[in-house]
Design a protein around this nucleic acid. Structure first.
Lengths: 214, 214
DNA sequence: GTCTATAATATGATAGAC
DNA sequence: GTCTATCATATTATAGAC
């Protein structure tokens, strides 16, 4: 029992090093994508040896999985439900089209302010890495379900997919391609310009809503 | 002069083999992206040796450049101007917002029907390859300029960028990610759903148009 | 708990044979 | 004009030393 709380235990030490590695990996995967990020570069950036990274995470695939599994699935209605402790993340919310629009815009506003690096790692890699693509599909599905639920139209699923694709394009060009107009614009500017666009997709024409599945 | 036109000249033979290699490369770059496409795989797919590919194109970078330089820059107003021999590709066209919307939708419709593989090669690779990213920026610029010209608003450049980002997202999810809803939808369905969205971005509110740059 | 040494493989590129 | 052989390098991954 020498120095009961002074020095970190081996487990704490390991956890700390693991975190440094994960942080370095997250950043590099987000900046360069899966293929162009090497174990060596991650280790060097974390100030450790490449062998240690392998020892802790087993393989590059598993390291990438650990980095991207922490990516928060964007909950469309997180904001609309007040963001309190009440609503579960996966819970479906029978919102109106207007609520869906505003919730989606709020969610987009957060992402335009500060998109998590783990999400950028997925977005950067998903066109050339099957695991990343799966991760994206899985993460996007609840959002798609929520939107589809809220859109009163026979083609609600396609409308939801278009909304998702639009957000994908905007985030990709702002953060990954860094096209100047989109990278420099304020979240508010973008939100304001996209609101009518989103409204048109969440709100179906009157006859469409009454229509059949054809 | 034995058999003046019967057998192909060496130049013709070479050109033919080059074309086979380019076709194979185009397809593989579009399917797997730059990094995951190997010279060996291209050669094998073209039915030749890897050394020959290097001999003809010099390097992998140059091969990719040859594949992607043939990607047609989408001209927004190609359709609106009648598609005849009159308008140059780079010529600016002082269209109205409504004309811009319809031209952009027509252009998108073509791409939703049959996006060229050389464009897909660029789109697939541009998040992880600087050359591909430059190619995309260069190809998108004329379209952005045309759109900005046609949108009567102080934030016309941001509106144009958003339109471009939206198209990018839709094309990427349809062809590269192959998300089912977007991959299965008909061009007409997508066009119809996006028309109001595009209209809202090309058409500024009345006071905005009269406003200053603030 | 961390690092060194090395295996096993794959790649872009080059030189030269036929 | 096309292919064989090879170089030089870089990577993930493993085994074992300290």
């Amino acid at each position: 029992m020498t120095e009961p709380t002074a020095r970190p235990t081996r487990a704490q030490q390991r956890r700390q090093t693991e975190d440094r590695i994960l942080t370095a990996a997250r950043q590099l995967f987000a900046e360069r994508g899966y293929d162009r990020t090497t174990i060596r570069a991650v280790a060097s950036s974390a100030g450790v040896d490449a062998g240690l990274v392998m020892h802790y995470f087993g393989s590059k695939d598993l390291l990438f999985a650990r980095v991207t599994e922490t990516a928060p699935a964007p909950d469309v209605f997180q904001a609309a439900t007040g963001g309190g402790a009440g609503a579960e993340a996966g819970e479906l919310y029978g919102g109106t089209p207007d609520e869906a629009t505003e919730a989606l815009l709020t969610s987009l506003g957060r992402r335009l302010t500060d998109e998590p690096e783990s999400s950028l790692a997925v977005l950067r890699s998903m066109l050339t890495n099957a695991d990343a693509a799966d991760r994206y599909r899985t993460a996007a599905q609840p959002q798609l379900d929520q939107l589809t639920e809220a859109i009163p139209a026979p083609d609600a699923d396609l409308r939801a997919s278009l909304l998702s694709a639009i957000i994908h394009g905007v985030i990709a060009e702002r953060y990954l391609l860094r096209l100047t107009n989109l990278a420099d614009a304020s979240p508010e500017q973008i939100i304001t310009l996209l609101r009518p666009c989103f409204e048109s997709l969440t709100t179906a024409p009157a006859d469409d809503a009454a229509d059949g599945q054809g």
